[in-house]
Computed example of a mutant assay.
Amino acid sequence: MNTRSMIFTLYGDYIRHYGNEIWIGSLIQLLKEFGHNEQSIRAAISRMNKQGWVQSRKEGNKSFYFLSDRGVSRMDEAAERIFKLRNDKWDGKWRMLLYTIPEAKRNLRDELRKELVWSGFGTLSNSCWISPNRLDKQVENLIAKYGIEDYVHFFVSEHKGPRTSRQVVEESWNLDDINKRYQSFISTYSEKFIIDKNKIEKGSMPDGECFVERTKLVHEYRKFLFVDPGLPDELLPDQWLGVYAAALFSDYYRALAEPASRFFESIFREGNEITRRSREYNAFSHPLMVNE
């Protein structure tokens, strides 16, 4: 597993709930549980610093790293989507973004495309991106971030046919491929969940192993942020496996949460302020993890 991606996962699922800051020594110790070496960890966190995802400060001879405002915003958005087990009800409208970014700004265009996929937009045609979700704020932030006011148009509109809204979805996203990915996730983790839950109930699964498995679980499930647009139920196929994958993720996460957090705190308390843990944080369940 990529070191940089694993650091993002640890910040999202643990560190941001403990004052949003960690001593590099603790981060190295945690990532060694996954086989990452000190050199690769330092290189990855340094790269994240240069990219503006994290910032650093010195205290004596210790270096501490914390999420930047940009990093916090991305983590909040990711958490809301990862732990939201039901999609929003559709208001019947489509958000449509069209752009004409010149070839001289190709890198900017490529970055914008990545951001739009992350946010859940699909391509109806070349340079025409659509979503049934309320992404108005995200679009405003992207326009401001990249300074592309002169190159884009954003519409909130209704679809009048002649094809159905589900056919529009089929043209804009490859739901069959996403469903196959969910099937693979379910096949892998349904068996692991049963085995690990039994071991935890018997007290035969060490806290460190629970920490590794919970982090891997979040890390793998987080990948769906880059492929699943989170479409409203009204626009999904009848045999949509995303619902089952979300339920499996929720049950497995909760089973691993308490011992995993115990292990994290056992490492974190050496060199960090454990008292900075958020009062709202509950290791046993995520505040956004609702079944309704």
Rank of each mutant, 00 (worst) to 15 (best):
N2K: 07
R4I: 02
Y11L: 09
W23L: 13
E33Y: 07
K50H: 02
G52V: 09
E59P: 06
E59F: 08
N61T: 15
K62C: 14
R74L: 14
M75H: 13
M75F: 12
E77G: 05
K84W: 12
R86H: 06
K89I: 07
M96T: 11
K105C: 12
R106S: 12
N107Y: 06
L112R: 06
R113N: 01
E115H: 12
W118N: 05
W118T: 05
G120F: 00
G120I: 00
S127L: 08
S127G: 06
I130C: 03
S131R: 06
P132I: 03
V139G: 03
G147S: 09
V156S: 09
T164K: 09
W173E: 11
D176M: 05
K180A: 10
R181Q: 15
K197T: 06
N198C: 07
P206T: 08
E209G: 02
C210T: 07
Y221K: 09
L225I: 14
G230S: 14
W240K: 03
L241C: 03
R254K: 14
A255M: 11
A255Q: 13
A257T: 10
A260T: 06
S261Y: 01
R269V: 04
I274L: 13
R276Y: 04
R279C: 09
S285P: 10
V290M: 13
N291R: 12
